[in-house]
């Protein structure tokens, strides 16, 4: 099998992992490139959801039901990654809230959210 055919076959069985890669890339790009501090926080959130998608995909099994255990139900998807991601979502919101509070404070002190402008103002 050629390398290209192998890649195509991987795409049909591992598509979510490729979506994870793209989301991590887009999040990182926004985090690094956007001059606006608020958009950097959005980029961080996209990066986070990429990782969530990785975990929830690992928990999935074909034909699985949600892990609500009843007699004769099943097979079930794994509950543990779901729990970890629930915790991570809430922690992510707390992180965003603190970051946004810092941004509001930075704006009230310096009057701008532009990264380069802030640097100039800081060193003046």
């Amino acid at each position: 099998m050629t390398a290209l055919a192998l890649q195509l076959e991987l795409l049909t069985t591992h598509y979510n992992y490729y979506a994870v890669m793209l989301l991590l890339g887009i999040g990182l790009y926004t985090l690094v490139e956007s001059p606006n501090l608020l958009k950097k926080v959005i980029g961080m959130n996209i990066f986070q959801t990429g990782i969530f998608l990785f975990f929830v995909t690992l928990a999935y099994r074909t034909g699985g039901n949600p892990p609500i255990v009843t007699d004769g139900g099943g097979p079930y998807v794994s509950p543990l990654p779901h729990v970890l991601i629930l915790t991570a979502i809430v922690v992510g919101v707390s992180l965003t809230a603190v970051a946004l509070a810092l941004i509001v404070r930075i704006y009230s002190e310096y009057g701008t959210l532009d990264e380069e402008r802030l640097e100039e103002l800081y060193y003046d």
């Binding site: 591992h14 979510n16 890669m21 099994r61 998807v77 794994s78």
Partner: peptide, 20 residues
Amino acid sequence: VIGATVPSLPAIGDPTAPVV
């Protein structure tokens, strides 16, 4: 670099994957 790890992951929905 992240993508280089994808081929070693189990296929999506594989019932014998380590997590499930």
